[in-house]
Design a binder for these strands. Structure first.
Lengths: 205, 205
DNA sequence: CCTTTTATATGACATTTGTCATATCATCTG
DNA sequence: CAGATGATATGACAAATGTCATATAAAAGG
């Protein structure tokens, strides 16, 4: 198995190289910058591109996107020090083969093997997060928070982008009343303003 | 590596056993019913439970749930003939280690190895579906609307519920500048206020 | 080098927003 | 009936928001 390692930190990159070579894996090249990823990939055409996801200048995702744009069959396995929701999605979107924690170095070789054989590999930390990401956060129980029916109506209208005047027209209330309701809602949900309320609404739906 | 195979179809189960034993993998037992899964797991305590996902009587998911309920550290790898969106989520939820197509029998061994070493393995057919499941709504093309990179950053922060001061602190800009940016954004997207912007963000994501 | 563009900032301003204290009025409830 | 409760309203106020005209400096382009 022939691969290229890209890591911001030269120490990490070198350690990885040593570890992997001890396991009879050929490290064709080591880079420490997203910029080098595409160049080195084109030059060596490795079986796998093992790359840090957090790097200065060009991050791993961006670099991988470029590599995959030019070489769609490239197998990219990301390395990271901790799991980041944002990155999981992006990595999957662009077609990475997986995502493994640096700490799990004893699992690195089997992971590489699996990727080499066409599988996709994800560490536990990642997978346990997926259901949460997949199933949009369990609906929020407004009742449990003593949010009345009328208040919920107002929440929906705020989450629709209406201002106080529009809400008052819709519900046949005075604008002041709407303000009062809203004030109570924000208080109950411990939010600061209507925008946070709208955000809350969409994130708990 | 010691494992148990559960498959509805005795022929498939037997074939798998033959293939795997040829690769020096110990098949402790073969079952053909979800009911047997829990019993056999308890009896043999294998490293991995390799199980069909579609079975009569008790399906794989249900059987795995029971096994995992009793033995939370069980490593369950599902087998299936085709990928089913519904199952992906369910399998991840209950804590399965992966999901592989029966057709990919040449990848089965590396996959088992990776699972044995604590990884999670998913076939390509599955992974390519994940982004779709993660965010099904076609996302909005801000570039096309001439929304600059910086403006997009501000949008994200507004959609996070920050006020102008907080945004300016985050981006090292003056509050006035943030206001100006926001004003431009609202103008470009033909929205009225930051709440509508947050709403827009969540509805086009 | 001069001009244009781009990013950032300021101040002034009207409007909207959120909070609070208080007021009606109808409906329960003992 | 008297008092409590709940829904709605008002007015006052400070803070935040959105708009606009304008300013400045740096970068880019000629």
């Amino acid at each position: 198995m022939r691969l290229i390692i890209i890591d911001d930190d030269p120490l990490v990159a070198a350690s990885l190289k040593t570890i992997l070579e001890a396991k009879d894996i050929t490290v064709l090249a080591v880079g420490n910058d997203g910029e080098q990823a595409k160049f080195l990939y084109g030059k060596f055409m490795p079986d796998i591109l093992l790359m840090d996801i957090r790097m200065e200048h060009i991050n791993g995702i961006e670099a991988a996107k470029q590599v995959l744009g030019q070489y769609p069959d490239a197998k990219v396995l990301f390395l990271t020090t901790f799991a980041d929701d944002e990155y999981i999605i992006r990595a999957l979107e662009i077609g990475a083969k997986g995502y493994i924690l640096k700490q799990d170095f004893e699992n690195l070789v089997p992971a590489l093997q699996a990727v080499f054989n066409g599988q996709n590999v994800f560490g536990n930390e990642i997978v346990t997060k997926l259901p949460g990401l997949l199933q949009e956060t369990g609906k929020f129980d407004y009742e449990a928070c003593q949010i009345t029916e009328k208040e919920q109506e107002i929440i929906r209208l705020v989450a629709d982008g209406l201002n106080n005047k529009e809400i008052s027209d819709t519900l046949y209330l005075s604008e002041g009343t709407v303000r009062n309701y809203l004030s109570q809602i924000l208080n109950k949900l411990e939010l600061r303003d209507r925008t946070q309320l709208a955000v809350f609404y969409y994130q708990h739906k």
